[in-house]
Design a protein around this nucleic acid. Structure first.
Length: 497
RNA sequence: GCCCUCAUCGUCUAGGGGACUAGGACGUAGGCCUUUCAAGCCUAAAACCGGAGUUCGAAUCUCCGUGAGGGCACCA
């Protein structure tokens, strides 16, 4: 069987990380089997359509490296790939169902339906359309038409029996047919609902496997009956578990943008991952680990390495969350593998966005010292800030003392360092390094330079985590280094030292 | 109210009747190294939701609880 799978988002906005995971699993499966990955836009709810959303979704997929073989931009043999452009097809098949006794026209108004639903809730009954239009007589129908009511087409669901939904991840799921609603297939505006469009398109686009989120699982029995009514073969189902909020409360897809959860930043849109300085390789790697496992205790791998091992049956049915901290770790791993020039290039846009101008060579030069400290590309901004920002350092004398270098000694050490920086020639890495080491050894109570050098780095860069001291001093230059040391020495005298 | 799904360390997971003293990763704690931090290396703490049953033997199979999640639109 030729594998043909699809990712079918609604153009209601950006690409969501949960959607990206669904797309990724489809893509992985298609690529593994040498099949096709199709992008289809489900825009039959015109009220919710957002201009530019299709482009935004495609941008997200491209950034992640998920390329599609057929889609709205590139076309394909089964197009068009935008559902509103296929409206005639859905109408045709909706009418076919009516003619063949599998669907009927319903004239209920939205107000009527709302009232019905409220009554059901008040009576604590189960909620759903009560099929009041299912058995209208031709006379009743004619009367409704005459009154100018625009009908919808509803599916005539079976009233008894059971339906089995075979699912590759969950096994067979049995539904009592009383649970299947007479759902609307064609809306009064002439456009289809998800149910109809989905079944018609999957059939005519020759989709072999449906991989979609778990939230769709309860629509599967209805869809199976639609296939049956049409006399078509249903695709193979695989319902993916949902990606939850990091707290575990609720599905992440309910969130539309980044938010904070118990102090932790939670990224939601794919574009937010990009803007935060995460690499697409790391995001894809992390996403592949949500609900699936490479095996052999391997955590870091490329999609190409994952493909031969990727099996739908091995997908974990339990809902899970994206481990953002682990994503940061993975991102750091990927960053460490980058060459200084590649990294500088990747970091550049973030500096540009912050209005910081650097020449590429200088930037490349600091990358080796910085690389191992970066979790996200954007962190470079923080680590390099001391180079561009001469605002007074926000430090206290307490931060600049150590158990091996108490306050008085630290004060004295910084003064000695200032003298050294003022007079040393030449002011470069080779000279500065040994001289500061020596100074450090002479000022601490244990004769080790470490404590002093740590504090000196804090003084010079103003940051807990920053590039190493000597490199930082050289990058900063003699005059600016002296200015910072002056500031720091003043701290000791200012607050009662 | 009705229906569906799911359940292993804090998180992501491995395991699918005996190889389990339950493995790995992130995170956490401690140590080493070191030019502090970071990175790297080493060590540690940390889980089979509960109860019945099947079986010589259950994390693994069955049932019942419990908990969590999802669905029940002229939204997808």
């Amino acid at each position: 069987m030729t594998v043909r799978v699809r990712f079918a988002p609604s153009p209601t906005g950006y690409l969501h990380i949960g959607g990206a995971r669904t797309a990724l699993f489809n893509w992985l499966f298609a690529r593994k089997h040498g099949g096709e990955f199709i992008l289809r836009i489900e825009d039959t709810d015109q009220k919710r359509a957002v201009p530019g959303a299709i482009e935004a979704i495609m941008d997200g997929l491209r950034w992640l490296g998920l390329d599609w073989d057929e889609g709205p931009d590139i076309g394909g043999p089964y197009g068009p790939y935008i559902q509103t452009q296929r409206a005639d097809l859905y109408q045709q098949w909706a009418n076919w169902l009516v003619e063949h006794g599998h669907a009927y026209k319903c004239y209920c108004t939205p107000a009527e339906l709302t009232e019905m639903r409220q009554a059901q809730m008040a009576a604590k009954q189960s909620i759903g359309y009560d099929r009041r239009c299912r058995n209208l007589t031709p006379e009743q129908r004619a009367a409704k038409e005459k009154a100018g009511l625009k009908p919808v087409i509803r599916f005539q669901a079976p009233l008894e029996g059971e339906t089995i939904v075979p699912d590759l991840i969950r096994g067979d799921i049995t539904y009592n047919n009383t649970q299947i609603a007479d759902s609307v297939l064609l809306k009064s505006d002439g456009l289809p609902t998800y149910h109809l469009a989905n079944v018609v398109d999957d059939h005519f686009m020759a989709i072999s496997h449906i991989m979609r989120a778990d939230e769709w699982i309860n629509t599967a029995p209805l869809h199976i009956h639609l296939y049956k009514a049409f006399g078509w073969q249903p695709p193979i189902y695989a319902h993916l578990s949902l990606v939850m909020n990091p707290s575990g409360k609720g599905k992440l897809s309910k969130r539309t943008q980044a938010f904070t959860d118990s102090g932790q930043e939670v990224l939601v849109k794919v574009s937010e991952f990009q803007e935060a300085g995460l690499l697409p390789e790391a995001v894809v790697n992390s996403l592949t680990n949500v609900g699936w496992s490479f095996g052999d205790d391997v955590e870091k791998f490329t999609p190409e390495e994952a493909m031969p091992r990727f099996e739908l049956e091995a997908i974990n049915p339990a809902p899970s969350r994206l481990n953002y901290t682990k994503l940061d770790w993975l991102n750091g791993q990927y960053i460490q593998e980058m060459s200084p020039s590649a990294l500088a290039q990747a970091v550049k846009p973030f500096l540009d966005a912050a209005g910081i101008e650097v020449n590429p060579e200088a930037l490349t030069a600091v990358m080796p010292a910085m690389r191992v400290r970066l979790k996200r590309l954007k962190d470079a901004l923080l680590f390099l800030r001391f180079l561009f920002d001469d605002a007074p350092v926000e430090l206290s004398a307490e931060q600049l003392t150590h158990k091996k270098l108490l306050r008085e000694a630290a004060h004295e050490a910084f003064k000695q360092m200032r003298d050294l920086v003022r007079t040393i020639e030449p002011y470069d890495l080779e000279t500065l390094g040994p001289a500061l080491m020596k100074l450090g050894e002479s000022v601490t109570s244990n004769g080790k330079a470490g404590p002093f050098l740590g504090m000196a780095r804090l003084a010079v860069t103003g940051q807990e985590v920053s590039p190493p001291l000597f490199e930082s001093m050289v990058a900063l230059g003699r005059e600016r280094t002296l200015a910072r040391l002056d500031e720091v020495i003043a701290l000791f005298t200012a607050d009662g030292g």
